[in-house]
């Protein structure tokens, strides 16, 4: 079920578009609903979003599967999205990925047993002069070193408990 609060948030996006174009808000609507559902979408929720925006379910499904930022299986509480593209690679992102894998004890894409952290290798996040870099929620972390990464992981674990 889409909550009242989520519907209100979705409405604030539909207002931006012409009267008969509320489906323009589908990308944000899916994000809002995903966040409310433990960072994960499912076919029923996608259909609900489509119904709410008066668009065909398949059209919402297309959006939900085309774009990178939607999850279709349960994810960790925190997703570390680490850039592995060229500028970050030149600045040692591969070593940071290995470092993260060994200190978390899981491979990229897997969730730690406590459900807290998952590491995803992602394509360019547009912060190349701050390479190597990664993103957690809305926040970018730039000019990373193994030590900085350790501190970030430590604080995620602290918050998680």
């Amino acid at each position: 079920m889409i909550s009242k609060k989520a519907k209100k948030q979705i409405d604030s996006w539909t207002e931006k578009y012409p009267a008969n174009q509320q489906s323009s808000a589908v990308m944000e609507a899916l994000k809002i609903v995903q966040l409310e559902n433990g960072n994960c979408l499912n076919p029923e929720l996608i259909q609900e979003v489509a119904d709410y925006l008066d668009m065909p379910g398949i059209a919402a499904q297309e959006v939900a599967t085309f774009y990178e930022n939607y999850n279709h299986k349960p994810m960790a509480k925190n997703i570390i999205r680490i850039c592995h593209n060229i500028s970050c690679m030149l600045n040692g992102s591969d070593n940071l990925v290995s470092h993260l894998e060994s200190c978390l004890g899981v491979k990229t894409g897997q969730v730690t047993p406590d459900g807290l952290i998952c590491v995803k290798k992602v394509e360019c996040l547009g912060a190349c002069v701050g390479a190597p870099m990664m993103q957690i929620d809305d926040q970018y972390y730039e000019n990373l070193t193994a030590k900085k990464v350790d501190e970030i992981v430590k604080s995620l674990r602290k918050e998680g408990k």
Partner: peptide
């Protein structure tokens, strides 16, 4: 309008499609 993770939306007609949801 916020994107949702797709480099191709930097192409102007893809971007327009994306704003249309």
């Amino acid at each position: 309008h916020l994107g949702a993770g797709a480099y191709i939306c930097g192409e102007e007609t893809a971007l327009i499609e994306s704003i249309e949801g």
